[in-house]
Design a protein around this nucleic acid. Structure first.
Length: 326
DNA sequence: AAGATAAAGCACGTTACTTCA
DNA sequence: CTTGAAGTAACGTGCTTTATC
């Protein structure tokens, strides 16, 4: 598992981000999307990112052979919904059988039941649908004429014939699964692929395009959430480590101060009474008073010294004093 | 060759709608 | 039945790239 964490300009972002910036154009300039942090914390290679169309990825070879022995991987955010495994190539024809009966079918039905009337159900817009954007006007040639789609259009409220109201449609499970499979193959589409997908799913190319845009956005959002979670954990760990090191540093400093202080004193002059735990000096009482003050200021309580501090200068003396006292 | 312009694609933010607890 | 949250299709906008003049 490789952990790549970079702040600011990411020289080698994780795979998905890298791909996004490369797909449209090999010479794509660094945009605002390419900046910012970039975390790679996933295990295993992305399913989505491994296979790309040659025409989509003119410089893919450079990506794969950039000398990284442990290729950065990313979290696979693709859904785990069951998708027919024979959908590896969406352009080879959808394998599910079609049926005439799509009336009253359950949208959340199992794949078996949902397998019916695939092509028939994909007509989402009736004639005279809402064509608002320039792209829609360009792509209207693929506009389907299936007006009986109960799945989608009938759920929309009564729209005026000019299509002024926005129609919110729900893609069928099959359509979503198909699009997901395509997204695994390539998370961007060239016009040919878009047209083919739209035709296959009986959608408008604009719908396919929007779906892919939204899908990329969802992937990025999820990845961002994962990144944030990870960074939060990193931050907590580092904070804790910092606190621990600060504490240790403080203790070391205190110890050094104490040590240097007692290095100046004659060692034989200090003793500690085991009963009263007071330091006494055999030479002068004034020294004792001074010593007590210093030791208290240094944060080390005599007799109650911190555990494990074997280098504490009083330990040996205390022992001898105890033995003599008994 | 360099600049202007149009077209297309994309990211991003938002809105509107659906579904579900 | 109502309501709020979550999910998502669709849209608007701005930016970038590419092709053409």
């Amino acid at each position: 598992m490789e952990l790549g964490l970079s702040l600011g300009d990411a020289p080698k972002p994780f795979r998905f981000v890298e791909k996004q910036s490369q797909v449209p154009s090999p010479q794509r300039r660094l945009s605002r999307k390419d900046l910012g942090f970039c975390v790679d914390l996933s295990i295993g290679r992305s399913v989505a990112g491994d296979k790309e169309d040659d025409e989509d990825k003119p410089n893919q070879g450079e990506d794969e052979s950039d000398g990284n022995e442990d290729p950065p991987t990313q979290l696979d955010l693709l859904p785990h919904n069951p998708v027919p495994r024979n959908l590896t190539n969406p352009y080879q024809g959808f394998p599910w059988p079609s049926s005439e009966n799509d009336e009253g079918e359950d949208r959340t039905a199992s794949p078996n039941s949902a397998a019916s009337s695939f092509q028939m159900e994909f007509g989402l817009y009736g004639s005279g649908g809402n064509i608002s954007s320039r792209r829609d006007q360009m792509e209207n040639g693929v506009m389907n004429e299936v007006g009986e789609s109960e799945r989608a259009s009938s759920r929309a409220s009564d729209e005026d014939e000019n299509g002024c109201t926005r129609k919110k449609l729900r893609l069928s499970k099959e359509q979503s699964a198909f699009l997901e499979e395509s997204f695994k193959e390539h998370n961007t589409l060239n016009p040919k692929q878009k047209q083919a997908l739209a035709k296959q799913l009986n959608l408008r190319p604009r719908q396919v395009e929007v779906w892919f845009q939204n899908r990329r956005a969802r992937t990025k959002l999820k990845q961002t959430e994962v990144d944030c979670e990870y960074l939060k954990r990193c931050c907590e760990t580092l904070t804790e480590e910092n606190r621990r090191l600060q504490k240790e540093l403080q203790e070391l400093r205190a110890l050094k101060t104490t040590n240097s202080l007692y290095m100046q004193l004659p060692a034989t002059t200090l003793t500690m009474c085991p009963s009263c735990e007071r330091v006494t000096s055999s030479s002068a009482a004034s020294t004792v008073a001074a010593t007590e003050g210093v030791t208290k200021r240094s944060g080390l309580a005599i007799g109650g010294g911190r555990p494990g501090s074997s280098s504490f200068p009083f330990s040996a003396k205390t022992q001898s004093h105890q033995s003599t006292a008994s």
